[in-house]
Amino acid sequence: MKLTGKVFAGFLLIFIGASMLLSLIGIHLGGLLGLAIGAALLYWGYCRYQENGRWSLSSIILIVLGISFLFGGIGGVISLLIGGFLVYVGYQFMTKSDTKKSHEEEEESLDYSKSTYDSLDEEIDRLLEKK
């Protein structure tokens, strides 16, 4: 059975519309919306896998999104994206500071012409010349 994007979008719009109409009379189906979207995405991804006979990028993306919606709802997907972004930015901060420190330490270790006593001698000479 071939499930196209139009059929999926139509199903999604019907479900959202029905949920809104039922909520007017006090029946709330908000929790079922994420479950239905996740199941539909899983089914659509699996159908694409069977059509091609192999895993394609689109089937993998559909199945991953379906699992995310199924287990975490729409809020779970947003939390997943925000969490992934924060982990990436934190990792970049950590690696950039480590590379700067190691680069500075490397430069200091390569400077063999001056010892710590040379700079002290220069400072004492400068202070004596002022008097």
Rank of each mutant, 00 (worst) to 15 (best):
L41D: 02
D125K: 14
H103S: 14
L62H: 04
L127F: 14
L12Q: 03
G72F: 06
V77F: 10
N52C: 08
W44M: 10
I60N: 04
G45P: 08
D118E: 02
R48S: 12
H28W: 04
F71K: 10
I60Q: 06
I63N: 06
T4C: 01
S59C: 07
S119W: 01
G90N: 12
G83S: 13
G84Y: 08
G5C: 02
E108K: 13
G73D: 04
C47R: 14
E123L: 13
L127E: 09
I124R: 01
C47N: 13
G72C: 07
Y43K: 06
E129P: 12
T95P: 14
S56F: 02
L70E: 10
F15K: 00
H28F: 07
L70Y: 14
F8P: 00
R54D: 01
I25E: 08
M20A: 14
T116A: 13
M1L: 08
I63K: 14
G84P: 10
G17P: 01
L42W: 05
H103D: 13
L70H: 11
D98M: 15
V87Q: 12
S59K: 03
T116Y: 09
M1C: 03
L57V: 06
I61D: 08
L70W: 09
L120A: 05
S119L: 08
M20S: 09
G10L: 04
D118L: 00
I37T: 09
I124C: 00
L41H: 05
K96D: 15
I63H: 05
S68T: 13
M94Q: 12
L127N: 12
I61N: 05
I67A: 14
E123I: 12
S109D: 14
C47G: 11
G31Q: 02
L41W: 06
K2E: 11
G30E: 04
E105K: 15
G53C: 00
M1I: 04
K6W: 02
Y88H: 15
L81P: 02
